Amino acid sequence: MTDNANIAAPTLMLSLKAAQKIVAAGVDEAARMGVPMCVVAVDRSGQIKAVAHMDGATVLPYQVAFKKAWTAAVTGAPTAGVRAFVGSDEGSAITMPHLTDFSVIDGGLPILVDGVCVGAVGVSGATAEMDLAVAEAALAGLKA
């Protein structure tokens, strides 16, 4: 008989309810700004948990928002921080941009619980600064 304690460890995870709350808060902020955007919440492995493609948003923001969320989730860092790291490390600068879903545009933020990344949110549809503001509002909505 195997000792299951040595096979699996409990992990924190992003619930569907939390992902939906994050996306809804992001949509509310984008609507307040008057800009149709796409808001994507992913789990820590980068798999989509919830998404909103607002009426009037073009096709491109969905792809970009997903890539921002994916990058923030798998690195556990904001996309702006990933950009700074990649810019400071030659090996990363050569390798990381070739990852299929990689993005370092502002607007991707990790979802941290007790310092552990459980997922991320990515927002696209406006300027990088506006995308980041909506992503910040989306995460703040989780606490509301």
Rank of each mutant, 00 (worst) to 15 (best):
A25Q: 06
G119L: 14
A24E: 14
I111P: 06
I48C: 14
M130V: 09
G122E: 03
G122R: 06
A19N: 10
A135P: 10
W70I: 00
A31S: 08
A93P: 05
I105W: 02
A50T: 13
K17G: 10
A5R: 06
L12A: 15
A9R: 12
H53P: 01
S45W: 10
A133Y: 01
D43S: 10
V82Q: 03
G81N: 10
P97I: 09
G87Q: 14
N4C: 04
D43W: 01
V35D: 01
T71Q: 07
D43Y: 02
P97R: 04
V23K: 06
M33C: 04
D3P: 05
V113N: 10
I7W: 01
A9Y: 12
I7M: 13
V39S: 00
V113S: 10
A120W: 06
V118F: 02
V35K: 07
A41D: 02
A9D: 13
A77F: 13
V64K: 00
V35E: 04
A69M: 06
E129V: 03
G125V: 01
F66M: 04
Q47H: 15
T75L: 00
A31K: 12
A18L: 12
M1R: 07
R83A: 11
A128H: 08
G115I: 09
A8H: 10
M1S: 12
C38T: 15
V121C: 05
R32G: 02
R32L: 08
G119I: 13
A126H: 00
G107E: 01
P61A: 05
D106T: 05
A57D: 10
D114R: 14
A137E: 05
T75G: 00
C117D: 11
Q63V: 03
A9S: 13
H53T: 08
C117E: 08
L60A: 15
S103F: 02
A93C: 05
S45G: 13
K143W: 12
M37K: 11
A50W: 12
T11I: 08
A69K: 09
A138R: 06
V27C: 04
T2P: 11
A84T: 08
L60N: 06
A128D: 01
Q63C: 13
V116M: 14
M13N: 09
